[in-house]
């Protein structure tokens, strides 16, 4: 479980204005909100790439904002992160990318490191692309390779920044489901940034809605249709499709009551 307590962060202008929330273990926790609302900054503050101006961030009780550099580096070994643009190392093959964290931190033999990397790549169904370079595979495959790299050290915490930006709906769905499966399979605390309503409805087990740098709403995907939160409704029901869905939902709910 990760607890965020009253976190403030500004660059030239304030970006996070006192965010408090809880991300639960074994669930896919979603941070949703418009582009530019501060989702990435929140995530990077939680993992410690950005240092916060004030507030506390607790990883199962351990406060990362109070840690020394050394302790923070140790904590990072428990963290996996999937970046918006995959962030695979272009000079390495897919297998080398996934083996990289092991090369840095594991004292297993080369054979065991290879086995572990291939196991993770097969878990994301990339067993056939070991020797290709990131530039030679599609965006969806890059995302999957990045997931394999993020989980290769058995992280306790997994962060995904817009895992399906730039992917077609079907591939997006595959990636979302993969993240959810991995979360349940290994009981990880997973945090996903997204502005994609399809993901929200697919894997939204615990949703935090960020609006202009503040937490405006929190709940599950089933709570969304009945939310009274004005900015959330503006965000979720922006498209005609979701407007229709809300009408249908309201209709069924009233039918059930009758």
């Amino acid at each position: 479980m990760i607890e965020v307590n009253n976190v403030f962060k500004s660059f030239d202008k304030p970006v996070l204005k006192g965010v408090s929330t809880t991300f639960e273990t074994g669930k896919t926790n979603l941070i949703i909100g418009q582009s530019g609302s501060g989702k990435t900054v929140l995530m990077k503050s939680v993992v410690g790439i950005h240092s916060v101006d004030s507030g506390h961030i607790l990883y199962d009780g351990r406060d990362i904002t109070q840690m020394k550099r050394k302790e923070r580096i140790l904590l990072r070994r428990e963290v996996g992160m999937l970046f918006q643009g995959s962030a695979l190392f272009d000079s390495m093959t897919i297998l080398e990318n996934v083996m990289f964290p092991l090369e840095m931190f594991s004292y297993d033999s080369l054979e065991e490191r290879r086995k572990r990397a291939i196991f993770c790549l097969e878990r994301v169904e990339l067993g056939h692309a070991l020797d290709l370079y990131p530039s030679e595979i599609s965006g969806g495959m890059q995302k999957r390779a990045a997931i394999a790299r993020a989980i290769v050290l058995n992280p306790k915490y997994l962060f995904c920044d817009e895992p399906n930006s730039g992917l077609d709906p079907k591939t997006s769905l595959l990636i979302d489901r993969l993240i959810q499966e991995i979360t349940h399979e290994f009981n990880i605390t997973t945090i996903v940034n997204t502005h994609d309503m399809n993901s929200v409805m697919e894997i939204g087990e615990n949703i935090v809605f960020i609006n202009k740098g503040e937490k405006a709403w929190t709940g599950t995907k089933d709570d969304i249709f009945t939310s009274e939160c004005e900015p959330l409704n503006d965000f979720v029901f922006a498209s005609n499709l979701y407007k229709e869905l809300r009408k249908a939902h309201a209709f069924f709910v009233s039918k059930k009551k009758d």
Binding site: K44, V47, I49, I73, L74, L75, R76, R77, V79, G80, M81, F83, Q84, G85, A87, L88, F89, D90, F100, P101, M104, F105
Partner: peptide, 17 residues
């Protein structure tokens, strides 16, 4: 610079490197 803007450096930092 390319590694910086494509977040590859962040990825290294996150791994604790």
């Amino acid at each position: 610079g390319t590694m910086r803007i494509t977040e590859q450096i962040d990825a290294l930092d996150i791994m604790g490197i």
